[in-house]
Amino acid sequence: MTGVTIFVGILIIISAIFAVEAKKMLDSFIALSLMSLLTVFLFVIMKAPDVAITEAAVGAGLATAVLVLALNKMGGDSQ
């Protein structure tokens, strides 16, 4: 289990750094969504299925949708 934890942890950190540093806003949101999905793995490993199901529904689904809709309202990736 430790190996899986370290592997998923490194992936989470890489996607977080990409989310912060990405040039295009849409790339950043997708990386954020990926980070949330990988966090679900970590929650399942730590025996927290309730939190995992909530994070999967919120982080990968609705939070990304809210951010993309807000970006769309400002006229796309132009800033």
Binding site: D50, I53, T54, A57, V58, G61, L62, A65
Partner: peptide
Amino acid sequence: PGGTIIAA
């Protein structure tokens, strides 16, 4: 989570 899935 149920409410979030319905909102999705």
